[in-house]
Design a protein around this nucleic acid. Structure first.
Length: 480
RNA sequence: CGGGGCGUAGCGCAGCCUGGUAGCGCACCUGCCUUGGGCGCAGGGGGUCGGAGGUUCAAAUCCUCUCGCCCCGACCA
């Protein structure tokens, strides 16, 4: 990837985002395959780190990984009325195979509730088989009209958890436990603050009783749904006849949940922290945490500097950029745009004095430190950067969240909140969970992101549209 | 799927209007020289001009169709 200029955020946020993805060597459009992308090594390494964080949390509460087929009989999708209605417009269908037309077409999974429901019905007989706690890491395909790398592509990678329980309460606990895991990873690993909440009826997953989400704010003020967790009730249990016998001998349908996060998180990560110089990665998700750039002029300097560089690198798991024929300046730019959290400059001056210069990606601050302190100082710089990124994102979220007490106020805030100018807002207003209210917001190109689980404002009030009493304020915003 | 923009060397572009040897910058290769924020000089390699069809003696250039990408909208993780 040749290194080209990056469009400043203030000039064109969408162009900036694309430049950062490309120049950070995270991904590129597949071009020959509509709507798809190639996730490059740097981007995939971030995904692997995220996967590990999520996977160990899932396993810690008893989930096991499995894998179901990519292809699903078309008839399966139709078994849950709301589900088929929600997904049919974006399905890719396989009609031919082995040189013949298939008797029944397969759809390429847009999500796996249906095929998993089928197998659940074969595997579950008794309450002793419950809860069944499964997760799969997979690719899915949704034929999107408009794609953006990581944020929305036709094919994407995700995990989808699917669980079955003997009662509703336990299923709801599961849904909320997972939502907490998502929020924990978003905030403490990705350094991306999120709002946990319930989706409105019209925004919920097709086929769910209730959907919960975590919502994040990007640097332009647009909302990003970063993860969802669904209480499926008995809808799929009934559609696929997943019955179990209770300890009292009664036959009942299972209560199911499903939940997922996708490679979209990487888009959120990029839009949370990166700057006009390129990618900024929080240390916990940086595949390379530290690069040492050696600086030398003469042969004798070169050997001494490189020797010191490799010795220091071994002590703190850093990478030495010892490429020939590249000036130190070129190397600084290279690692900067790839989001490496800390770069260490090491030249003859430092070697002579027993020092090293440590530079943080986010602040650009340089610090000269004794070499023997490097491992410790590096660790503390990384830890501090992780915290600082979170704090900066948190502050941005707070500063761009505003209260509105009438529909006119909601409208005027959203009208001024053009993302192109980086002025997107989260508007907190009282609003009834009613499809007609959601529809009104469409006039402002906004949606209810969610109804926060935790009310951080003033409690009950009157809906700004219907005037009816509602419990708390909801998050209204323009979204990706 | 509608509106707009764009497809010419790995990347960024010029050439197209007015048809006539396919160019420039960066990157790449070789050599020398350099290295504290994108070094320099010299030489060199690399192209079915997105694809198909048509007009023409002749098409990157004109016409028709098609595919893809980006932006804006309607639908969505």
């Amino acid at each position: 990837m040749p290194e080209s200029p990056i469009t400043p955020r203030a000039r064109d946020f969408a162009a900036w985002y694309q430049d950062v993805v490309l120049q950070g060597d995270m991904a590129e459009p597949a071009e020959i395959v509509k709507g798809c992308m190639v996730i490059k090594a740097n981007g995939y390494a971030v995904w692997e780190l995220l996967q590990r964080e999520l996977d160990e949390r899932f396993k810690a509460c008893g989930h096991q990984n499995v894998y179901f087929p990519l292809l699903i009989p078309e008839s399966f999708l139709k078994k849950e009325a709301e589900h088929v209605e929600g997904f049919s417009p974006e399905l890719a269908v396989v009609t031919h195979a082995g040189g013949k037309r298939l008797e029944e077409p397969y759809v390429i999974r847009p999500t796996s509730e249906t095929i998993i429901g089928y197998f659940f019905s074969r595997w579950i007989q008794s309450y002793r088989d419950l809860p069944l706690l499964l997760n799969q890491w997979a690719n899915v395909m949704r034929w999107e009209l408009r794609t953006r790398m990581f944020l929305r592509t036709t094919e994407f990678l995700w995990q989808e958890g699917h669980t079955a329980h003997s009662n509703h309460q336990e299923a709801v606990e599961e849904v909320l436990r997972i939502l907490d895991i998502y929020a924990d990873v978003a905030e403490n690993v990705m350094a991306m603050p999120v709002i946990k909440g319930v989706k409105t009826a019209s925004e919920k997953f097709a086929g769910a009783l209730r959907s919960y989400s975590i919502e994040a704010m990007m640097q332009n003020g647009l909302a990003l749904q970063a993860g969802t967790s669904h209480d499926l009730g008995q809808n799929f249990g009934k559609a696929f006849n997943v019955q179990f016998q209770s300890s009292e001998g009664r036959l009942d349908y299972v209560w199911q949940t499903s939940w997922g996060v996708s490679t979209r998180l990487i888009g959120g990560l990029i839009m949370s922290h990166s700057d006009d110089k390129g990618l900024v990665l929080p240390p916990k998700l940086a595949p390379v945490k530290c690069v040492i750039v050696p600086i030398y002029r003469r042969e004798d300097e070169k050997s001494r500097v490189l020797e010191t560089a490799h010795r220091l690198a071994a002590d703190c798991q850093a990478k030495v950029d010892d490429r020939e024929g590249q000036s130190p300046g070129a190397k600084f730019f290279h690692w900067e745009r790839r989001g490496v959290p800390v770069v260490v400059e090491l030249g003859p001056r430092e070697v002579a004095a027993g020092n090293a210069v440590l530079k943080r990606r986010d602040t650009g601050a340089k610090e000269t430190i004794p070499q023997q302190e490097l491992p410790g100082r590096l660790q503390s710089a990384l830890a501090q950067m992780q915290l600082d990124l979170y704090q900066a994102a948190r502050r941005r979220l707070q500063e761009n969240t505003v209260l509105a007490n009438s529909l006119a106020e909601v409208e005027s805030i959203l009208k001024d909140a053009t993302a192109e100018r980086g002025g997107g807002k989260f508007v907190m207003a009282h609003l009834k969970d009613d499809p007609q209210c959601d529809a009104r917001l469409k006039e402002f190109k906004a949606t209810v992101r969610n109804i926060p689980l935790k009310d951080e404002y003033d409690g009950p009030g009157k809906c700004v549209i219907t005037g009816e009493p509602v419990d708390r304020r909801v998050v209204i915003a323009k979204a990706y």
